[in-house]
């Protein structure tokens, strides 16, 4: 179970990202497309293609320790899914008055949840499986940490967050809730 967190500035520039592997067992959402597609493994872009086609099971080795290749676990695929969900989030932002957008977008096995601060910062979380309360609590923690970062007079809404303390705190919160 991996989680990917992105903090985006009001102009959608990534300011901070975190990949977190949680050890909690949760039921993963199976993709209906998986298994119905040919094996792309001979292609140079095998990972990307399998990921995008939804054949997540072809390269998954969920047994402990092994590195998972393809199947939507590649960094660039994750980033693309996160980017693609921005459109959906922006639409939702216009009509909904909440800050927390629960499972706003879905792509194969990935679910995207988002949190929008009043200053228009977006927190994106890609996750597999359901954990609404945990994700909400996690976002609330990240929000508080972000407000504290923002109070630094040298920080602007477009400055990447590089604080080691921030990173440690976010990881601790992820460990607690995700």
């Amino acid at each position: 179970m991996s989680h990917h967190l992105y903090l985006l500035s009001p102009s959608d520039t990534p300011l901070y990202s975190l990949t977190f592997y949680s050890t909690r067992p949760t039921s993963t959402v199976s993709s209906p497309l998986a298994g119905n597609l040919p094996n792309w493994s001979t292609s140079a872009f095998a990972g990307t293609l399998t990921a995008l086609s939804g054949a997540s099971s072809s390269a998954h080795q969920t047994s402990s320790g092994t590195v998972r290749m393809g199947g939507g676990q590649d960094r660039h695929v994750i980033q693309m899914i996160a980017n693609a969900s921005l459109d959906v989030i922006e639409d939702a932002m216009k009509t909904q008055t909440t800050m927390y957008f629960k499972s706003v977008d879905k792509f194969n096995e990935w679910t995207v949840s988002a949190f929008v601060t009043p200053g228009n910062m977006k927190f994106l979380l890609l996750h597999e499986g359901k954990n609404d309360d945990g994700i909400k609590a996690f976002f609330t923690d990240v929000w508080e940490l972000y407000v504290k970062t923002m109070l630094n007079p040298f920080h602007t809404a477009h400055t990447p967050v590089r604080s080691a303390v921030f990173d440690t705190r976010v990881r601790a919160s992820a460990k607690k809730y995700l």
């Binding site: 008055t97 800050m99 929008v116 609330t140 929000w143 407000v147």
Partner: peptide, 14 residues
């Protein structure tokens, strides 16, 4: 944050 931070479902103004 001070107004909504502790609430269960924080609201934005649209």
């Amino acid at each position: 944050w001070r107004a909504e931070g502790q609430s269960k479902a924080p609201k934005r103004e649209i």
